[in-house]
Write a protein that binds this DNA or RNA. Structure first.
Lengths: 349, 349
DNA sequence: ACTCGTTAAGCGAACGTTCGCCCTTGCCTA
DNA sequence: TAGGCAAGGGCGAACGTTCGCTTAACGAGT
């Protein structure tokens, strides 16, 4: 910070007191039109910009929102990060807010300390948090300290203890199931996540819902659980392909695209053709999905709207003290149908 | 901001003046060990955290770095964003700095206004900029206003007018060329970017260097230019495959992974096998690359080191007023060899 | 002619720091 | 014994705002 025009200089030029200039800027002023014009002219001429620290010291608010997220492993891009961030700070800027990004720490205690630090020093007015595991300590901590925040995701299906926006993963998978059933599939397997994943369970629930809606009875051997990686997808699919023919699945619903990628590899290696012989669906609609061979049917989340929505709600709260209704919102994802399912030839043999 | 413990409260508890507390915290103090202990105890007991606005108002610095970037199109993930950001704010935090992210605007004038605003209000002390097109107005603007910044990338090959770190794209492509030549390729094509792309030209230069090093003479028809999309890659490859056999390429070097993906599709559609019949290389080593069929040989950039490096250099400047040498740094990318080249069978017929 | 209300603008204070200078005390040295 | 110096700590001021209260001037109503 080299130069810096202050209120006083503007005031001197306009021939008024500096407090009056302040009033004009925040239009809380009863000022004659002529003086007001003089002041605005002086502001323009000197190219005055209100000092952020001064302002925020006086107002006791930083007009800044904090956000951190868990870094994705090097072999896996975060498919939503860019859009999510962009939409958050775009929405924030409209209200004069900005987004402060800070490091993620795997150690919970350390992470909480960072949250506390950022808030207690007054660097941020509130947070957006997107990490929602079962034992996640951040939510109760912020809640307990009455630190404002909104969540991308929830901790329990029927959670109402804090404001959030979440994707209805179950509804997404249910859509995929409906699609598969319509194509004629009856033996549908699921590649699921470990049962300690809330998001995973939520999505899997859509699988069960899809089965019962189609009147298909559930076979436990058709649900395989594991980490959401392509390796797990690969192994699990090999297992499924080795099942006796009468229960061997003709379609595999995966809880994310990575598993679907692994599944596709396994199917191909078994000499079968993805899509035509066995349908595969993913979840996330990673940009990669459409470039796979064949292009992968997947479920895409309305990230942009969520980012904007969350930000606006948080700011609304910061300014007024009340969260706009509904406090908790569930948005539906959309099924993107591609060749990995659409090219199915039932009873191919 | 609800509660807020101040210096004065700490001072009252420790029985000293509040300025003394400040001195102890910034350890500029000549204080007896006992008083110092009393002060630290009081700080711990009250859980005091220095107020950010007060501090930054007094010191006239925000300890904040600004960063914006061009959003990537929805069908394309930004492969480096996550790692780049993470490493930037991790490095920043170590020095007590944070990263402020703000919206990108395609309109240059508007974008510059945002830069100016952020700096003039004192919200940030400096910037990291990563958008480096030929006509890029940001660099000269910041330079002219003497606003501190570092660049990820440069505007000209021999640029020294501002501090930056850049990837030596030419060296990367040259590595790929060497690899292909070693496999026995002699007819090597390049899918290049429009000639108004500095980054593209820099990379392409590595292609020419590779050719001449191997003593292969350059055929203009083997260099096809276009946007770095898979569609362009697809079309361009179809054209290449239609060339008369004596000049038809046995390997295609692409300036990014997207083009390589398109190239692979075209090759496959032509009934040829990627890797065995025609080698393909990409650039960026997107996480996708290893999951393609076959896995794509690509060039990976050391993003983490760059993010950390840039941040440290900028902060160093902000604190001392001098940029650490060397002001401009070029880092070499690394070739990741995968099946899209390694399975080549020369003279397959 | 006196009060009253309105309009236009000024003034002091406060937000929480840090900075530089000054004061006091005690001790050492010439 | 006067002078000096170092250690330990206090004090006023300033950074740039905004907030709430006061003041001055003026016209209208009784």
């Amino acid at each position: 910070m080299f130069k810096s025009v202050t209120l006083k200089e503007v005031a001197a030029k306009a021939g008024v007191s500096y407090q009056t200039v302040s009033k004009v800027i925040n239009n809380k002023a009863k000022v004659s039109p002529e003086t007001e014009k003089r002041i605005w002219d002086a502001i323009a001429e000197l190219n005055y910009t209100p000092n952020y620290s001064g302002r925020s010291l006086r107002q006791q608010r930083s007009k800044t929102i904090g956000y951190t997220w868990e870094p994705s492993p090097p072999d896996q891009a975060n498919p939503i990060l860019d859009a999510f961030l962009q939409n958050m700070f775009r929405a924030a800027e409209e209200k004069g807010y900005y987004l402060l990004c800070f490091p993620f720490h795997a150690d919970d205690a350390r992470m909480l300390k960072v949250y506390a630090q950022l808030y207690d020093t007054g660097r941020v007015d509130g947070f957006v948090i997107s990490r929602m595991n079962y034992g996640e300590p951040t939510v109760p901590y912020l809640l307990g300290r009455r630190i404002p925040f909104v969540g991308f995701g929830r901790l329990q299906d029927d959670d109402t203890s804090f404001p959030y926006v979440d994707v209805d993963g179950g509804a997404g998978i249910a859509q995929a199931m409906e699609h598969l059933v319509a194509l004629g599939h009856r033996k549908i397997a699921a590649l699921a996540w470990p049962s300690d994943s809330r998001v995973g369970n939520n999505r899997l629930e859509g699988y069960y819902r899809g089965l019962s809606k189609a009147g298909i009875l559930h076979r436990p051997s058709l649900v395989v659980r594991g980490e959401g990686t392509s390796d797990v997808g690969f192994e699990a699919t090999n297992y499924l392909l080795g099942l006796p023919e009468e229960i061997r699945p003709t379609a595999i619903v995966c809880m994310n695209d990575m598993m679907a990628i692994g599944a596709m590899q396994a199917i191909r290696q078994a000499g079968l053709q993805v899509g035509r012989d066995i349908g595969v669906t993913g979840f996330d609609d990673t940009p990669t999905a459409r470039y796979l061979t064949p292009p992968l049917t997947s479920i895409s989340q309305p990230i942009s709207e969520i980012g904007e929505n969350l930000t606006k709600r948080l700011i609304e709260f910061l300014e007024t003290g009340i969260f706009p209704e509904p406090r908790c919102e569930l948005v539906a994802p959309r099924l993107e149908v591609r060749e990995s399912t659409s090219s199915y030839l039932p009873a191919g043999k």
